[in-house]
């Protein structure tokens, strides 16, 4: 006690970002049965359901329909994971854990980095599960380089939904955020052309092309299809701005109050 009184204690390295923190955060997310089911198992099951039907071998761009479905499901799974990670940040603020952490040397940026790293790991896991399922099933077909590019793009694009999760987490208090995000993302996935192809140029297609998962889906599948329409990029960037802006807006109000 007496020696401690006289010491100037150094700040933690990297603002408190460390392996223990990362491991425990990951363990928490994997402990959540809903996260495991909906982000890891459900998309793989959907892949088997959609890609197993006839027409899976039909050609699409540089690969086939099975590969197309695989990328879509990987994006869907990753989006659910990152959205869940985003909403957990808001939940932690609402239960006062963030306030508890403010009594430690943990730097806010290190906290965000930890959360982002967890979302990245779990998102990669979600993408990986669907890809492994596709390999196991054996019908998906596309050049390895493009395959990897699709997986990487799906993971990166899913971060748009981390911002959405954070935003919704602030708007919907408590643990209800995921109950809204789950069906919401399923709807976005449907409109984003992830589940069933919507006829291009139809009225529904025009509406769908404005929804948040449409753009990122086109981007994720670009290495496979070999085309990247300009409106898909605009869509993805616009929704990223909306979600990040919304999250920042709610977060600043929350901070001002606390």
């Amino acid at each position: 006690m007496s020696t401690a009184t006289d010491a100037t204690r150094p700040a933690p390295r990297l603002g408190g970002f460390n392996r223990v923190l990362l491991t425990l955060e990951l363990r928490r997310m994997l402990r959540n049965r809903r996260t495991v089911f909906f982000s890891l198992l459900f998309p793989a099951a959907l892949f088997f359901a959609f890609a197993g039907s006839s027409g899976g071998d039909e050609r699409v761009g540089h690969g086939n329909v099975s590969a197309y479905v695989m990328v879509s499901m990987a994006l869907y799974g990753a989006a659910l994971t990152t959205a869940s990670a985003g909403s957990s940040v808001a939940l932690e603020r609402s239960v006062g854990w963030s306030r508890q952490l403010r009594l430690t040397p943990l730097h806010p940026l290190a906290y965000i980095a930890t959360k982002a790293a967890c979302a990245l790991v779990l998102g990669a896991l979600a993408v990986g599960v669907v890809n492994v399922a596709a390999v196991a099933q054996g019908r998906a077909e596309m050049p390895t380089g493009r395959w990897l590019a699709c997986a990487l793009l799906a993971l990166l694009c899913s971060f748009v939904f981390a911002a959405l999760g954070l935003f919704v987490g602030y708007v919907v208090p408590g643990e209800n955020a995921m109950q809204l995000l789950g069906p919401g993302l399923a709807l976005f996935a449907f409109l984003g052309n992830l589940f069933i192809p919507i006829t291009e140029g139809s009225a529904l297609w025009h509406v769908a092309s404005l929804t948040p998962m449409f753009g990122v889906a086109e981007i994720s599948r670009a290495p496979l299809t070999g085309e990247l329409p300009w409106y898909a990029v605009v869509n993805a960037v616009a929704w990223l701005v909306v979600f990040v802006g919304g999250a920042a807006w709610r977060m600043s109000r929350d901070t001002a109050r606390g």
Binding site: R9, P10, G16, V20, L21, T104, P105
Partner: peptide, 9 residues
């Protein structure tokens, strides 16, 4: 352990 990992002393 979570909170402990944040302190140096």
């Amino acid at each position: 352990r979570y909170v402990r990992s944040l302190f140096t002393h």
